[in-house]
Write a protein that binds this DNA or RNA. Sequence first.
RNA 1: GUGGGUGUAGCUCAGCUGGUAGAGCGCCUGGUUGUGGUCCAUGAGGUCGCGGGUUCGAGCCCCGUCACUCACCCCA
Length: 444
Amino acid sequence: MERPTPLSGFPEWLPQQRIVEQQVIAKLQRTFELHGFASVQTRAVEPMAHLLAKGETSKEVYVLRRLQAEEGDNTDSGLGLHFDLTVPFARYVLENSGKLQFPFRRYQIQPCWRGERPQEGRYREFWQADIDIIDKDTLPGHYEVELPLVIADALRGLPIPAIRMHVNNRKVSQGFFRGLGIADPMEAIRIVDKIDKIGPAGVGKLLAEQLDATDAQVKACLSMAEISSPDESFVDAVRALGVTDELLDEGLAELAAVVSTAAAEAPGLVTADLRIARGLDYYTGTVYETTLDGFERLGSVCSGGRYDTLASDGKNTFPGVGLSIGVSRILGALFGNGLVSATRETPTAVLVALPEEERRRDCDRLARVLRTRDIATEVAPAAQKYGKQIRFAQRRGIPYVLFPEGESGGPEIRDIRSGEQTPVDMDSWTPPVADLRPEIRAGE
RNA sequence: GUGGGUGUAGCUCAGCUGGUAGAGCGCCUGGUUGUGGUCCAUGAGGUCGCGGGUUCGAGCCCCGUCACUCACCCCA
């Protein structure tokens, strides 16, 4: 086999990076459970009809197909890999609605696939950590306030840059455009969302060309898009533009509730940012986008929103609200800039040195004793010179080497960072907690 | 799908107007004969992405192709 080359867009981490990923995921998991979210996993595939029906026509879905199809059979399986975790979850809720208790809070940490051209921060296979709260018939607004706080809690304590959550409400944009007399409010939302990329002039041009917006309308749209505030003051700013609409009022009230509560509970976390739209059009209320300080160019690392009709079978409707952390996007950026790493690249805390091959059984026994106390231990691969064996540990970041027989005649443990070596009682010795498992840290 | 950039040692990269392929780091071995890191000395390792063309001669020029990468689109 030729030497393989990486597949663009399908990242694979090295063991040390994987340790970081595992610990990040473990932290997310712990926090989500602490907030009462139950874990759910869904299959990798969904029926194409389901994937595409949710307004995701633009999504580049990977389609599943059997290689050994019947001759002349060109049809695919009708299955596609999911591109997020919200759509599969909505399907799961409908399918199991009779067995679930509502409101239902679940978290889901799985890979997703999108057949897009990869570039920095965008992969074709990537992990999302998703939380959603879904209810039957109606969903109280307080959940839209709760979710950002859970996310902040989950990311707190990890060695990653601060996050800033930008929040808007679909009703605000939609109501505003409608009250303004814009022909196609949804299209207007999409255009205004590009303001960071193409600037106010570009947005104005598109609004005029594609939606026949008048100069006055364009001006009002741009003014609206520029509104941003860490508190409720955005409400007055919108009112000052003189647009009245029932939906707009509703949205402003909801958004004000989210922002003011967040400001009180987690100062600096949330900003009302009226340009935020989100491409996915199943959102009906609050929408969230999150930037990492210093990595704004990456785009959003945690997005979501409220959806009222995504999970609906015509008879029953299950409105929900959710947020998804882009685990791969965050880690890829941090790894790429050497901002986070693990203290070692293996779980092993102790390497048992091997004096000679004939003593391997004895060394295995020593290792077993430590393992009974949850100390990750391995025996040296070969009875090389001790210098080599110590180096084996050092290269991997293993903090301790255990010598079966030191000068004292009994087992001795060596902290290879300090070089300190002391006789050890095999039945009681345990490393400091910090050395028990690899830990994640800022920097390389 | 469209456009730009880049492919040389395990990694990061030099390689002049076309003339027999280099460095740093890493790795092996030894100095140190069974206790690492520093230092010193050695050594191994390359289909120059792949295919074709021009030329006495191609890593370098031309054509094609593949991969990676950046941007557009869209998004975690």
